[in-house]
């Protein structure tokens, strides 16, 4: 929808965007880490060693998620403001677009 998006963000907002990027990557990473060893070396990860691998990985994943969500909580003081970012999540303010906008602005003067 026609919402005005700032092209560059202040430091805290920038950090929040990057954290939400991490939140997107995390499940994919988790899935890859859980699936790949079983496809590659099922015999190695099926028994005792596998149990240690799996529960270690699992605990690490939970810690990572908890850390991430906590960081997002502190980086996101007004949780409600993020409530309307559905469409905007996709279009990150890229550097190129910003430079282009800057040029056109100065040209207008």
């Amino acid at each position: 929808m026609a919402r005005h998006q700032p092209l560059f963000l202040e430091r805290s907002s920038y950090r929040r965007r990057r954290l939400s990027d991490v939140a997107r990557i995390l499940p994919v990473l988790a899935l890859v880490l859980i699936l790949l060893p079983v496809w590659w070396v099922p015999a190695v990860v099926s028994l005792t060693g596998g149990a240690l691998w799996l529960f270690g990985l699992w605990a690490g994943l939970i810690a990572l998620t908890a850390g991430l969500f906590a960081a997002m909580g502190t980086a996101d003081p007004s949780a409600q403001s993020a409530g309307q970012d559905g469409g905007a999540d996709g279009d990150d303010p890229g550097e190129g677009a910003g430079a282009g906008r800057g040029r056109s602005e100065s040209a207008g003067r």
């Binding site: 997107r24 799996l54 994943l61 559905g86």
Partner: peptide, 27 residues
């Protein structure tokens, strides 16, 4: 053996993405 854990690993992965996936669904 370890296959029992699949039933709990699936939700773990899904909830790791809770912040942008499930939150959207709930909203």
């Amino acid at each position: 053996g370890l296959e029992f854990a699949t039933i709990y690993l699936g939700p773990t992965v899904v909830f790791a993405g809770a912040w942008w996936g499930l939150r959207r669904l709930v909203r």
